[in-house]
Design a protein around this nucleic acid. Structure first.
Lengths: 232, 232
DNA sequence: AGCGACGCTTGACAATCATCAAGTGAGAAA
DNA sequence: TTTCTCACTTGATGATTGTCAAGCGTCGCT
């Protein structure tokens, strides 16, 4: 692992309060790899050999059942994914695949678990991380159960607008077929949903989004922090 | 809090390895209350004053948005619910309501957080609990996204059959309208789904379930431990 | 430059699901 | 015992969503 990668992950909440000695142990056993697009990093059902950290690029978490597939999340730098399986040494519930060329740190799960057992600050950081993950998935479930697909798109766009610092023009960060899958619909229905939002001030051309009537969109979307605010 | 309530909760994974002193501190500040049916114990959006533990009865966790409501889970004895909000001191993402007369322990959130900060075994038990909760919600999300409502019912019945020790006859533990909501459908569609499963060997009369052709049901339902096994 | 693959859009049609309404039966209260 | 309330079932209808197919444009490779 190159020395210049370490400062990138140390400030992560998960590692920040870990002792220097334990952090060095963890880092010593890990390595960095660059993967091209469409590489499967983890397969649902497998035992977790590594904890992964995305340094650059992006990774899609997805699940399959009965020849159907759905996108569960897209992970961006700098963050870990599927921590619970690693800590519990339980099978992955999702597969992970690079969306684009990505640089990933792989930390052996055994080392992570060993540090977890002996570093109390790390254990408590794991709690924070898992609580955050849990709460995020609850919000996603509520979104799926309480809203129609068009409402879900509308709220996704509002979240993206907020993430873009309130800009009325921004780019979708996901290919549309992935966005469709994440929102729980087909690509065809995403195209239709986009069209359905035009009267509410949404113009989407390729990956470019322009919101021309924010108030109308918010009136339609009815965002709720209990579903749409991922920071709490 | 009556002394006879304490042995009931001590063996919970969450408390088992907590020091005696910390456990007594926690218990000293808590109390037990019996609630009649349909009492709202927590309201989504509120700050968590207590960690709740169900001693008897049952509690439904539900969410509302835009005059719509959905059931997220039903909690049975002996277990806690909504631990993440308490630990993080973040607003509840779900409301909780008693389904029937229920006996509940209420532990002040402040005490729980204080013990979390000073009892390392408890902190690690919280990790296990949160990881389990997280993984359960991932499975629920996969169920919702990858299966039709009839498939979800079929798999719910298979899980219930397994929970009943493999008995081919068992009672639904939930009222049908709650089950419908939990499975993400209307009560009308639950009735129709039940009928649709008759050719696969499912007979339901009131709360009584009889599975007459387990192999057919399994062939249709295609259970997967990555969605249907809540023990890992 | 040409070709092929792939993502996306659009239309037609089918399947799934929700809404509305009416009826039935069980349980609780008077 | 009677009455009322509520959970559930059933049917009709409408809305939402998925599937299939064709066409277009972009990108990457030869």
């Amino acid at each position: 692992m190159r020395p210049e990668d370490i400062p990138e992950i140390r400030p992560l909440d998960l590692f920040r309060n870990m002792s220097e000695e334990n952090f060095n142990d963890l880092i010593r056993g890990g390595y960095v790899q660059t993967f091209p697009p469409q590489v499967v990093l983890t397969t649902e059902g497998d035992q977790p050999d590594f904890l992964h950290i995305v340094l650059s690029g992006s990774v899609e978490l997805f699940s399959t059942w009965n020849d159907r597939e759905t996108s569960m999340a897209t992970v961006r730098p700098i963050s870990t994914f599927i921590l619970a399986a690693t800590i519990r040494d339980a099978p992955y519930l999702m597969s992970a695949r690079t969306c684009e060329k990505s640089r990933i740190i792989l930390l052996p799960s055994m080392d992570v678990r060993a540090v977890f057992e002996r570093d109390n600050d790390f254990a408590r950081a794991v709690v924070s991380e898992l609580a955050q993950c849990y709460r995020s998935v609850i919000k996603i479930s509520k979104n799926l159960k309480l809203r129609t697909s068009i409402e879900r798109l509308a709220n996704y766009l509002l979240r993206s607008h907020r993430r873009a610092g309130g800009a009325l023009e921004f780019d979708l960060l996901l290919e549309k077929r992935r966005l469709a899958s994440f929102l729980g619909m087909t690509p065809e229905n995403l195209s239709r949903a986009i069209k359905a939002l035009r009267p509410y001030g949404v113009e989407i051309d390729g990956a470019q989004v322009r919101i021309t009537n924010l108030a109308d969109l918010e009136q339609f979307a009815k965002p709720s922090p209990l579903i749409d605010d991922y920071s709490t």
